[in-house]
Write a protein that binds this DNA or RNA. Sequence first.
DNA 1: CCCTGATTCGC
DNA 2: GCGAATCAGG
Length: 109
Amino acid sequence: MGWDAKDVALLKKLWGDGHSAGQIASRLGYSRNAVSAKLKRMGQKRGRKPPTANPRIVSVPKRKAALLAACARPADKVVSPRKPAATQPKEFTKRQLYAMLVDAVRNTG
DNA sequence: CCCTGATTCGC
DNA sequence: GCGAATCAGG
């Protein structure tokens, strides 16, 4: 596997446009996990909501200590100023997606 | 049950 | 750096 410029370009384009990781992943041929991880590595910018997932861990026994510590976290602030979105994301047609891909390839490749 | 994004760990 | 596993929520 390799994230070519075109992959990243399209990924960024779609993601920045407001598309879901699943849709992008499906189109790109990667799993949503890969897309999500890739986005994170890049410096994912989208001010997503507050950390829904707690600092969890993967290895059960090992992370158990960390998990316990995390659980013991006090907490929190509430609230958050919300701004109404002026534009709403719209689904792209094959034609549009293809156009973007072509453009991305032409520009990067 | 489907989906969403987010995070960490091992390779 | 990449991707799977996993969590947490809608």
